[in-house]
């Protein structure tokens, strides 16, 4: 198969048939129990969170998700969380720390939801808290960028010990459309923007931004191998003394 261009990768990452965050959670864990709400303002549908067993080990899962149909897409703002979503994720991650549960974050978002209410409810502050607290959580923390990893809204849940990407996923400081419009005042130059942004998993791995590329899992496929892989990764991290875990995480980001 010919290698995809950067823009083809963008399209593949956005494909509506891509495996959903919900299916990944159900496929990877057993006994999953979903938990709702940020205990302050509401329950953002774009963020799912809960507890489940990953090969008999309880883990906390948080995930940003798009919808399966138009109605769901609208409710979830096409995978763009509101401040309440980030606060829910943060609440569950802090709870995970209390109960010594590893954290798995699944990211599929074009970015945080840009509207007036999100500003009023402190979207900047919500992301800032996820970063500040997330990077110091005393439990293993793994993020997977499943489809789109757009800007601050993505890194908010991608600042753990390991960051993986699916083959057909992208991760960038801004969407190619936004980049084209800012840099060239021409939002039609999306293909050029996709190239310029270096948003492919291969480039990001070569440059140390992510740790590994995960083979693309399609809807309905057996997730067993991914489950084994993640269980191993969590195991390795869990074997480190907490001080060492935090030191390595700190080093990972200090080098950027």
């Amino acid at each position: 198969m010919a290698k995809k261009t950067a823009y083809q990768r963008v399209q593949a990452a956005r494909d509506s048939h891509k495996i959903s965050t919900d299916e990944l959670i159900r496929g990877l864990t057993t006994d999953f129990f979903e938990l709702h709400g940020d205990r302050s303002d509401g329950d953002d549908q774009a963020v799912i969170g809960g507890i489940g067993l990953l090969k008999d080990v309880p883990i906390t899962v948080v995930g940003i998700r798009k919808g399966a149909d138009t109605e769901e897409n609208i409710k979830r703002h096409f995978g763009s969380p509101e401040p309440e979503g980030y606060r829910k994720a943060l609440r569950l991650m802090q709870q995970a720390e209390k109960f010594h549960r590893p954290i798995l974050a699944l990211v599929n978002t074009p970015g945080a939801w840009p509207d007036v209410d999100a500003e009023y409810h402190g979207i900047g502050s919500a992301i800032a808290k996820c970063l500040q607290v997330g990077m110091q959580l005393k439990v293993p923390y793994i993020s997977i960028i499943v489809g789109e990893g757009g800007s601050g809204g993505a890194i908010a849940l991608a600042c753990g010990d390991k960051v993986f990407m699916f083959e057909d996923s992208i991760y960038s400081v801004l969407s190619p459309e936004g980049y084209a419009s800012i840099m060239w005042k021409d939002s039609s130059k999306v293909q050029q923007a996709a190239e310029a942004l270096n948003l492919t998993p291969e480039w990001l791995q070569e440059n140390g931004i992510i740790d590994q590329i995960i083979h693309e899992y399609h809807s309905g496929e057996n997730l067993g191998p991914l489950r084994d892989f993640l269980a191993n990764q969590f195991n390795e991290l869990a074997n480190l003394p907490i001080g060492e875990l935090l030191r390595q995480r700190e080093q990972r980001y200090r080098n950027f």
Binding site: M135, C159, V173, L174, I209, Y253, R254
Partner: peptide, 26 residues
């Protein structure tokens, strides 16, 4: 905000600085 010309490296600064802020806070 982010420095577009430096792409993802600019985004990573958010995490890098947050880490240092938290260490100072702790």
């Amino acid at each position: 905000g982010a420095r577009m010309q430096e792409g993802i490296k600019s985004l990573m600064q958010m995490a890098k600085v947050s880490q240092a802020v938290e260490a100072h806070s702790k």
